[in-house]
Simulated scan of single mutants.
Amino acid sequence: MKAAQLIHLRAFALIESCLVITGRVGVPELQRAFCNSRSSCSNIFTEYRKGYPWAVTYNDQEKAYIATDKFKPIILEQVFNTTAQEYFDAIQLISLNDILAPTRNEKSKITTRQTALKKLNAQLTQLGANND
């Protein structure tokens, strides 16, 4: 499996975790968890919706994706074999960010953490590319 595929699966699992826990997920949650650009997060949502069009719908007022009645956490259950809360807690720990609601006082800390995480993600991507 290529590094890009792993990154998408990891993001898809976070999307599903947020949908199970809160019923909604948006670009900010992915950005806080993985330090991705807004456009790369939007691309991840596009890919998720292509694979699982029945799972989510976009709500313009909330600027977030909302779980539909047909939503089931397929990636969490079939790929990661874990619960939404367990996965969310693991990503929360790894990202060192409060994924759902960072406070204003945390913004400078988040920027420092995001820089470190971007470097780590780049290293992981390079490692994955070297193993292909």
Rank of each mutant, 00 (worst) to 15 (best):
V56C: 11
A3M: 03
R38Y: 13
S42Q: 15
N59W: 11
Q85E: 15
T83E: 04
P73W: 00
E106I: 02
G128Y: 12
I7C: 02
E47Y: 02
T112K: 14
E16P: 02
E62Q: 14
V27T: 15
A101S: 15
L127Y: 15
F34C: 06
T46D: 07
A101F: 10
K119Y: 10
C41A: 14
D89P: 03
K50F: 04
F88L: 07
R24K: 11
A13Q: 00
Q123R: 13
N97S: 15
V79P: 03
R24Q: 12
N59Y: 09
K118H: 12
C18Q: 04
W54G: 01
Q61V: 12
N81Y: 06
Q123I: 11
S39A: 09
E16L: 01
L127M: 13
Q92R: 15
A3N: 04
A13N: 01
N105P: 00
T82L: 02
L117A: 13
L93Y: 15
L124V: 11
N59R: 08
N36I: 10
R49K: 11
D98W: 09
R49H: 02
A101T: 09
S39V: 11
L6P: 01
E86W: 06
R32F: 13
L96E: 15
Q61P: 06
F12C: 00
A55R: 02
Q31G: 05
T68P: 07
I94V: 11
A84R: 04
N105W: 08
D60V: 12
D69C: 01
A4R: 06
T46E: 11
V20G: 00
I21Y: 01
N105S: 13
E106D: 15
P53H: 03
T22N: 05
K2A: 03
V20W: 00
A90N: 13
N43A: 07
M1C: 05
I44G: 00
D98I: 05
A129C: 11
K63I: 09
A84C: 06
A55T: 00
N121R: 12
K109A: 08
I7V: 07
R10H: 04
S108L: 10
T125A: 12
L124A: 10
Q92S: 14
I75Q: 01
I110S: 09
Q114P: 03
A13C: 01
N130P: 04
L124I: 10
I21L: 12
H8F: 05
L6A: 05
A90V: 07
N131V: 08
N43G: 07
A3E: 12
I44Y: 01
G26C: 05
I74H: 10
G23I: 02
A122K: 15
G128K: 10
K118F: 07
G26E: 06
C41L: 05
A122N: 15
N43I: 00
K107M: 11
I110G: 04
I7N: 03
A33Q: 02
Y65M: 07
A116F: 12
L93W: 08
L93C: 09
I74Q: 06
R24N: 05
Q114H: 14
N43H: 04
N105V: 03
L19V: 01
L96I: 07
A33V: 04
T46K: 14
T111R: 13
G51W: 00
A67Q: 08
Q85K: 14
